[in-house]
Amino acid sequence: MRIISALCMRNIRLFLRNRVQLVLILIMPFFYLYLLSTIFKSTDISDPTNYVLSGIIIIVVFQTSLNIAASTIDDMVSGYMKEVLVSPAKRIQIVIGQILSSTIIATFQGILIMIVGCFIGLRYGSIFTPLAVIVSMIFVGLVFSAFGLFLATSVKNSQTFQITSVAVTTPITFLCGVYVPLSLLPNGLQYIAFLNPMTYAASFFRALSLEKLSLPLNELISDQLAFKAGNLIITPQISFFVILLFGILFLILSTVTFTRVDFSKMNRTQMSKDIYNQ
């Protein structure tokens, strides 16, 4: 427990030390909110501001958890991970420490945007909704932290990692219905969106956040909280189970990969991108 909490504290300290990043984190989502609200007004969605804001919160949680977990590759490339791995700390403790810290940071960012969002019209009908929203942020954070750690430990070369990271995160970000409504995507891209785990995370999170989990199916579809994948209608509840399965899969994969990877073969060429100084 001591090793896990030490790793968490270290990553959180690194995150908080970057003041410019903290300010940008708060500004950027509202820039997107302004931009996207205009796009989403052209759809049938009843409350576009809240709809977009809840999408932005979950995409920030996704990006942050993925990036912070993937910053493990910085520690590998800088050599610091070698110091960690030669210590009596077990690799599973390191995996848990890295995943938990990125989840905590991602959730913290999500909560910050949620709080500022309340000043510009984000409303919850029940006092339990914000708590449920925070719990689901933690859940999505854990899922994508595991995914990020898996990416970092699977790609041993830092240059390859940068390319892979962009190649993986760009479609996940733009083909999940947060920035561009799924109904506006061309047919081909819609099919790709169905393979995107973030589509399911965004769908569930939005329905929960907008307190519309119990809406009838036709209203869920018209509000783009449920969607059709062929003949199957994906409700937010089904989305939850899809993302749960995805999370369990990558939690296992990242743990197995991290405990088996030979860090002595890491390419130690310095990365130009610093995840904490973006």
Partner: peptide, 21 residues
């Protein structure tokens, strides 16, 4: 090769080591 955490202070590096050990 150098294996210090360059984004942290000397003391923080040493404290992390103490926790690991």
């Amino acid at each position: 090769e150098q294996t210090l955490d360059v984004k942290m202070t000397v003391e923080e590096n040493l404290k992390m080591h103490c926790h690991f050990y």
